[in-house]
Amino acid sequence: MKQIFVKPEKCMGCRSCEIGCAVQHSKDKDLFSAVLQSPPPMKRLFLEATEEIMMPVLCRHCEDAPCLNACISGCLYRDEKGLVRRRKERCIGCWTCVMVCPFGVITRDGEKHIAVKCDGCYKLDMPACVRSCPTGALVLVDIDQFQQEKRHRLVLAGTEREV
């Protein structure tokens, strides 16, 4: 299964991911039309920063998803790709999902009075935020492969130490 992973050490805080996300969730999916759209399109991930670190925070599409478990109207569901998505027409704006999300990445659409969250850009091969990141701080990876590569790097680092 592929997931969007964050490499905080590469994040420069440029917010290009936020813009890419908002544009992808706009009517025409084009920056210039999106800028003129009213009400403006909403982003689904959020750059957070402290003195030491900055990184985008985004929906993990948790396998045991608190939001999905808590949704009382049947709005949230898991699709065939494993993404936690909305059936917008079923959202009643109770904000239970907002309350239980451990990451704070479900927000409120003040115009439509419904919850808004990452849909993993299910129509795209590459999510808009990953595509927009100029430094590679956001990556779309296969989790198994990610672990394997990490182990490989660890071994490599050990070998280099010995040399």
Binding site: R15, E18, I19, A22, L31, A34, V35, P39, P40, P41, M42, K43
Partner: peptide, 9 residues
Amino acid sequence: CRISPFEDG
């Protein structure tokens, strides 16, 4: 400095 074009931030 930068300002989001989407009325957030």
